[in-house]
Design a protein around this nucleic acid. Structure first.
Lengths: 153, 153
DNA sequence: GCATATAATATGTATATACATCTTACTTGG
DNA sequence: CCAAGTAAGATGTATATACATATTATATGC
């Protein structure tokens, strides 16, 4: 029988998992915590902040298109956007195609976004400093790459 | 008023978001889909497969320690592991410290792991091929780095 | 040895997210 | 113009995940 490893302190704290997916998800968890905590006093989750940021950039957009940009299932967005609506941060209107929902920020949403932007920047900057500018840039490129090729694969 | 962009086809399909966290999460979603679909016929989620893989490697481990390795809140593991227990893939025993739960794979769990390993390898390999070996290696290193520094930051 | 502090896990609650399926609206072949 | 097909979003259901708090067991100061 193998010696149980439970008592040994010899396990490295973060062994490299062999699975790219597991490594991505683990990194996403840790980084999400960092941003979520930075935004805590703003009363907004980083996932919600991301939607505000996207809407701030594009102005108006349909639910489906927003889903494509964020690689989020459109039906997932139904509920995420509902939370934002309940907060009064976004509003929807019908498109010319009456099946579509066109979303945009409300005034309160723009304000919430601007407000939380400070703490977001702090988190973003803290991470960039800790990882190094070069690595941060490389990571960005690789994440864009892997997102693209995974969608095709 | 800005022209609504809803009708224009001119938005690039995957604009680089400005947020490292959003980029990580988006990549994790896309890659998760790839692996989940590869494992579909095995009746196991990639998240569950990851737990089996970790347990297969370490043999026996407490819930808390497993959480540290995977950067998963130990209370999240309570329910994830319960699902695996319900499937009969893992079993728990009390530790010497009677608060602890020590987990390990059952025979059925080892078999399920070995079985699903084939499709996991296919997904892993497909991704590696699509992204390139060099980038895949760099990504691994960067993900380990960002995980480490984010936990400290 | 006890009161208190702390650690490991469980439970309540909330959000994020996916997929299957349903509904409604558009599109298209005839 | 209509029937059949398809596209956009809503809803049912399930898992992943976090945090606050509760519970139980261990550790520690006196």
């Amino acid at each position: 029988m193998l010696k149980t490893e439970t008592e040994s302190a010899a396990r490295s704290p973060l062994p490299l998992l062999a699975c790219t997916c597991a490594n991505l998800r683990r990194a996403a968890r840790v980084v999400t915590r960092l941003y979520t905590r930075a935004l805590q006093s703003d009363g907004i989750e980083i996932t919600q902040f991301t939607l505000l940021m996207a809407l701030d950039q594009v102005g108006e957009i349909s639910q489906g298109e927003l889903g494509e940009i964020l690689a989020l299932d459109s039906t997932s967005l139904t509920r995420m956007l509902k939370l934002l609506k309940d907060h009064g941060w976004v509003q929807a209107k019908e498109g010319e195609d009456r099946r579509m929902r066109i979303f945009r920020l409300t005034k309160a949403g723009r304000e919430k976004f601007q407000q939380s932007l400070r703490h977001w920047k702090q988190a973003q900057e803290r991470l960039r400093t800790a990882l190094g500018a070069k690595s941060t840039g490389e990571l960005s490129v690789l994440l864009a790459e892997i997102t693209r090729v995974s969608q095709e694969a």
